[in-house]
Simulated scan of single mutants.
Amino acid sequence: MDTAAGPGSARPQKPTLNSIARATGVSRQTVSNVLNDPARVAEPTLSQVREEIRRVGYRPSAAARQLRTRRSQLLGFRMRETPDGINGSIHDRLLHALTARAHQRGYSLLVFAAGDDHEEIVAYQELLDTNMLDGFLLTDTNHGDRRSDWLQEHRIPFVAFGRPWGRDDAATDRSHDWIDIDGGAGTEAAVDSLVEGGARRIGFLGWPVGSGAGDDRFEGYRRACAGRGLPADLVERREDGFESGADATAHLLERDVDALVCVSDSLALGALAQLRGRGRRDLMDRLIGFDDTPVARAVGLSSVDQPIEESAHRMVDLLVHRIEHPTAEPPTTPRELLTPTVRRRRSSATA
């Protein structure tokens, strides 16, 4: 039987908060909370209402919401240029996860470029003047970072991916919101994993002193070696990159290392090439990078896997809370360290 609607047929009614509330047996306010402040709704009600929203294809009116809340539903995010395509995958993962989570919360990301932190601050002002952004998501925090000062001084909501490194000289309070990954715990676990496999002279390929994340990862290596009674001075520091990793590894091999921990997969892949070129297959499976990039997985390189998606979700949820409930305490901690995981593999170069 043909059930197609004729010219005089009534159009199906658009789903509304009220119709979803009736279908799920909850109040209209509960449906609104599921959409705008899910932390206030307990299970199984939260999942039940979300399933009904998905089933009927409900989409909140962005224009109506902006008029009602006087917000643009836009979050600013600076996309950085990466020196190579290896570590750039981490930024891609973060951007994708932030975008997806923002969409779930009814927001969109406005992505912009800036050459350095000063240009980023200039971009903040321009974007706020022209687009009425509701807040910003910061990445790559560093020593002497002034972006958080500027945003705090102008009372702009923001959340940083990274701790406020070395801010004793900051003009404003350091206690802004941030989510970070415990890099020191990652390298500590990497050293422990190598020691369990018999390593006793573990070298470390790091970034130059002054990098917040790099220094944090070095401290994890140092703590692990000290706790195991191992030398913690088998260290080479270089700018990030494949060639740097290969060169640093050549120097460490002269110091009779029997394993390597690297601050990034870029350095680790350079190290892997150096080991292969020298025929040091005994060390290829005693090499651990950091970031667990697709390239590392493809060649079987062991690496420290960061919980990027979880970090992104927590960042967006915290920022949305600050925007929509500026005077209320957030449901989760505003300063949180997440723990990475060591992924051990057998290098394909040794197969």
Results as ranks from 00 to 15, higher is better:
268 A>M: 11
155 R>F: 06
345 R>A: 12
158 F>Y: 09
77 F>Y: 15
205 L>F: 02
159 V>W: 03
15 P>C: 03
4 A>C: 07
252 L>I: 03
167 R>G: 00
320 V>Y: 00
205 L>A: 06
348 S>A: 11
93 R>F: 03
54 R>L: 04
196 E>D: 14
109 L>N: 05
241 G>A: 08
40 R>A: 13
143 H>C: 10
258 D>W: 05
204 F>H: 14
42 A>L: 10
123 A>W: 11
336 E>D: 11
305 D>A: 14
89 S>H: 12
18 N>S: 15
117 D>H: 15
241 G>P: 06
8 G>V: 13
299 V>T: 10
49 V>E: 09
246 A>W: 04
186 G>E: 08
30 T>D: 01
86 I>C: 02
261 V>A: 04
176 H>P: 00
311 S>V: 08
170 A>S: 15
349 A>W: 15
40 R>W: 00
177 D>K: 04
47 S>D: 07
75 L>F: 12
99 T>M: 08
33 N>Q: 14
88 G>S: 05
115 G>C: 04
94 L>V: 05
262 C>L: 09
349 A>R: 08
199 A>I: 06
189 A>I: 00
279 G>T: 09
33 N>Y: 14
82 T>C: 09
19 S>I: 07
4 A>I: 13
171 A>Q: 10
23 A>L: 10
335 R>K: 11
312 A>I: 10
146 R>M: 07
130 T>W: 09
79 M>A: 12
38 P>H: 01
273 A>H: 13
204 F>D: 06
182 D>S: 04
47 S>R: 12
129 D>L: 12
146 R>D: 02
238 R>H: 02
236 E>W: 01
33 N>D: 14
228 R>A: 15
61 S>N: 15
312 A>D: 06
160 A>D: 02
52 E>G: 00
